[in-house]
Design a protein around this nucleic acid. Structure first.
Length: 555
RNA sequence: GCGCCUGUAGCUCAGUUGGAUAGAGCAACUGCCUUCUAAGCAGUGGGUCAGGGGUUCGAAUCCCUUCAGGCGCGCCA
């Protein structure tokens, strides 16, 4: 619908010998009395053409070949051009949607096969996933769904920080617990990991290896055994948690592997060859300032060890070398200071900064009944993603995360999320879906032919003219808006737009249901209403699927 | 001190990338189940878009500034 408006406006502007703006804005007016679609284009052109907006709007209308889709096209307010669609046009579009089914929902191939590497979660395997990781996971998975459906080729990747000091610290923490279990003792590292999971891993090692390492020092080879073992354990748990959350990855990139395969060295050699690396005060530096960062960054410390940034350069080099047209990283907001240096690295490697888009996910505060849940990282006491999933369910958790844009703080209240009531927006949307299914089951019982396999196509043939109630027209328009919302969500990389749209759609279906019966004695009317219900169901299902949230047949 | 993010109804948040009289849910109050799911619906009240200045036909949205909150600013990850 929006496309049609854009096209005829562009044509009219062509007639008027006016250069067509890159993007003709089309929106849905706030007040439905104003029309179905609206464009402020005349106002935007006013300055350039040095004429009053209303005048321009009138000229556009005069030069427009509108075709038969519109009931009314008029100038309103300061210079909007408002379009009111003919009902027949709505019916035609609806029927087209039903006939095309899922394929039509995101028919526009936005991605055109472009390759995107989407890296998210990437939590260090030094402890269980917490809520913040969950938010990143929900966002990443939903975004991947959207981008894939929009025609991008998306690879979901998890970067494993399995090298360096943190890993060693985890190993040492386990090592200490292990000694304790066997009656020996080894000092617990100062800033070691204290969660119960550390002890669990120690117990497991004690069970499998008995007292083989009893009384030893934390040094090779046993140190790498403990670190490696602990890492594998944690990673397995992380994978299991993500799977339970309904989030999967295509590839798992190990940091350690980048070192083992000398990719870090090679990347640095490459930069050295280009003159972006220098030595100073015993350390090796990257000239980040040359690419817009505030200061140069150390990549090899004066003790000879690499910094985290060194492997990150190699990692991002590997990403772009993989032939990806676009890189998307989802990070916790506390890493935002890191963006300029990674972009600098990318640029120094010969790629445009724009190729990397970093989405920041703000922190999640966990509440219970409005009061903050105390968490102490030091004592290893915190509520993990798994705890929350077990308490409120994966679907609700995901939906909650996706009802806010990534870049705003999120209060996650366990009591609210757990409430199986109106307070909980997930149910509102799912309930609409389940309700439609219930109605359709009822319709089948009443003898209306609505087989599930071919139902949509069949409904496309229904006589939709019977749909004349205001609630019905409103619902049709909202359903038909889905592709535009979808496109906007893809374009902005913002899955939460889908969430809001689904709430609005459900918010139109529920009152419709309450005021009008779908299944009546009038079979022509009934078939039309079934068709509309099925269209709504189609969109609800697709949207929920994008969010990675279940669409239950009954509740 | 510098940088980034946030500030919208009592609470939690949207706001179609600068458009019309700023929206939704919750909470509060009043009604609706012998008929397709009441996890639902109908109605009522609720605003200095943190404050100030600027840009222009037009600002919650862009710029400057003040205030408040969060996060960053390591040869940590």
């Amino acid at each position: 619908m929006m496309e049609i408006v854009r096209r005829i406006i562009a044509e009219a502007l062509g007639e008027m010998m006016v250069s067509v703006p890159e993007r003709i804005e089309v929106e849905v007016p706030r007040d439905e009395a104003l029309g179905d679609l609206s464009t402020p284009v005349a106002m935007s052109l006013s300055k350039q053409l040095r004429r009053p907006p209303r005048k321009i709007a009138e000229e556009i209308i005069a030069n427009m070949k509108a075709g038969g889709d519109f009931e009314k096209i008029e100038v309103a307010g300061p210079g909007f051009i408002n379009f009111t669609l003919k009902k027949e046009s709505l019916y035609r579009s609806l029927s087209g949607l039903l006939r095309g089914g899922k394929a039509l929902l995101a028919a526009k191939d936005i991605g055109k096969g472009r390759k995107i590497l989407l890296e998210f979660v990437s939590a260090n395997p030094t402890g269980p996933l917490h809520l913040g990781h969950g938010r990143g996971a929900a966002l990443g998975a939903a975004l991947a769904n959207l981008l894939s459906a929009a025609g991008f080729r998306v690879t979901k990747e998890y970067y494993i920080n399995d090298a360096g000091r943190q890993m060693s610290l985890l190993g040492e923490s386990v090592f200490s617990k292990y000694q304790e279990l066997l009656g020996a003792s080894y000092p617990f590292p100062e800033d070691g990991y204290r969660g119960a999971y550390v002890e669990d891993i120690a117990k497991k090692i004690a069970r499998e290896e008995s007292d083989k390492y009893r009384g030893l020092e934390f040094a090779p080879p046993q140190s790498s055994f403990f670190s490696g073992y602990a890492c594998r354990q944690m990673l397995a748990q992380i994978k299991a948690d993500l799977a339970a959350f309904g989030v999967t990855f295509d590839t798992w990139q190990s940091e350690k592997e980048l070192y083992d395969r000398h990719e870090v060295e090679k990347a640095l050699e490459y930069l050295r060859g280009k003159g972006f690396i220098y030595e100073n005060e015993g350390a090796t530096w990257f000239k980040a300032t040359q690419f817009g960062d505030e200061k140069d960054r150390v990549i090899i410390k004066n003790d000879g060890k690499y910094t985290y940034f060194a492997s990150d350069i190699a990692y991002h080099k590997k990403k772009v070398d993989g032939g990806y047209d676009e890189l998307i990283d989802i990070w916790g907001a506390d890493h935002h200071g890191y963006i300029p240096r990674v972009k600098a690295a990318l640029e120094s490697l010969g790629y445009e900064k724009e190729r990397l888009k970093v989405l920041l996910v703000q922190m999640v505060s966990l509440l219970r009944g409005g009061r903050p849940v105390q968490m102490s990282k030091r004592a290893g006491e915190f509520i993990s993603l798994r705890d929350v999933m077990e308490e409120v369910g994966a679907d609700t958790t995901k939906f909650m995360f996706l009802t806010r844009k990534a870049d705003s703080h999120l209060d996650f209240d366990l009591e609210v999320a757990k409430a199986a009531s109106a307070e909980n927006p997930v149910y509102y949307v799912q309930y609409a879906y389940a309700r439609i299914n219930s109605i359709l089951r009822h319709a089948v019982e009443k003898g209306f032919c609505v087989s599930d396999a071919e139902g949509e196509t069949e409904c496309a043939e229904a006589d939709l003219v019977a749909l004349a109630e205001p609630e019905e027209l409103r619902l049709i328009k909202k359903v038909l808006l889905y592709p535009a919302v979808f496109e906007a969500a893809v374009h902005a990389r913002e899955p939460h737009r889908i969430t809001f749209y689904l709430q609005e759609l459900a918010g139109l279906f529920h009152p419709y249901y309450n005021r009008h019966r779908i299944v009546t004695e009038d079979s022509r009317l009934t078939l039309a209403r079934i068709a509309l219900s099925r269209a709504a169901r189609l969109v609800l299902r697709d949207g929920l699927q994008m969010l990675g949230v279940a669409a239950p047949e009954r509740m």
